[in-house]
Computed example of a mutant assay.
Amino acid sequence: MFLSFGTNVATLTQDESVTFNAILTDPDGVADIVGGTLRSTDESLEFGVFAAAGQPGAYSISLSWAQIHQTEPIEFAGGESPRGFRAVFFDQGGNKATDELTLDLVCAGGAACDGSCTDLAVDGLNCGSCGHACDGGEDACEAGACAPALSRCINFDEGLETCTAACQSFGETCAENACGAGITTRTFNNLMWCEDDLNGANKIMACDEPQMWNIGARAIKCCCTDTK
């Protein structure tokens, strides 16, 4: 039977480790205890094997945040996530003893995505929710929503004459003079330059203003709300 089962810390965050300590006794003597493992509360997952910890009947196992994530993915919002653990021990007669505890996994930024602490309000790779990436990249998230970003390249022969029409074709809305240093459009000599983002010319213009397709502006990117 368990005399005690606990941890050396009450909470755990990224890059930290926790030690689980168990002390048991047995009617036939502690030498009759075969050993134990640390598992999930439903015992479907195993985190590792307890090692003898000095005095007879004492056992421990240390796990890092990364090791816990590897066994059971860490992902949550709201600042913390209680995680249950069960210690399972056996004696030589096959008798089983179990005990459980809960450890709070916490992140200062309020959330964890794929095992990494983050702030969903400003993380452009996890904007508003885990896995929701902004077109504008990791710095394009404001208050949990993606900021406007330049669209994919639009070639002159696609029949999209305004940025309003172009953004609508993506299911988004044109954001007038809201990208970069305050632009609506970036023009390029050709589609290849556009796709490589080379030698673009920034333009301040209205969303409904028709594009002036010419030899120096055969492809464009439009500033669109990132609403996907």
Rank of each mutant, 00 (worst) to 15 (best):
A52H: 05
T13R: 14
G124M: 04
P56M: 07
K221R: 15
F90I: 11
T19N: 01
G136D: 05
T118N: 04
S151P: 09
I33D: 00
A145H: 12
Q168K: 09
Q14C: 06
G36H: 07
I23L: 13
C113E: 04
A217I: 10
F89V: 05
I61L: 15
D139V: 08
A217S: 15
V88I: 11
G115E: 04
F89Q: 06
K228F: 14
F85P: 00
Q70M: 06
M212F: 10
V9Q: 09
T184K: 09
A53S: 13
G200W: 00
C207V: 07
E75V: 09
F156N: 12
N202K: 09
D208V: 09
C134F: 10
E80N: 12
M1W: 03
L160S: 08
S17M: 10
T19M: 01
D139A: 13
T98K: 06
S169H: 12
V9S: 05
D196K: 06
C207P: 03
G131I: 11
T25E: 12
A53Y: 07
N214M: 13
L191Y: 11
V9W: 00
F20S: 00
T98N: 10
I23N: 12
L198T: 03
E172V: 03
C141K: 08
F188A: 03
F47G: 00
G182I: 13
D104L: 15
I154K: 04
G109S: 03
S81D: 08
T7H: 04
E176Q: 15
S44Q: 13
T19H: 02
G6Q: 13
C163N: 05
C130I: 09
L150C: 01
I215D: 12
C167N: 02
G29A: 04
K228L: 15
D26H: 13
H69Y: 12
T173N: 14
G131T: 12
C224E: 11
A108G: 13
E100Q: 14
E161V: 12
E100V: 07
A97I: 07
G159C: 08
A112G: 07
E138N: 12
R152E: 12
F2E: 05
D26K: 08
P210A: 07
Q168N: 14
C153I: 06
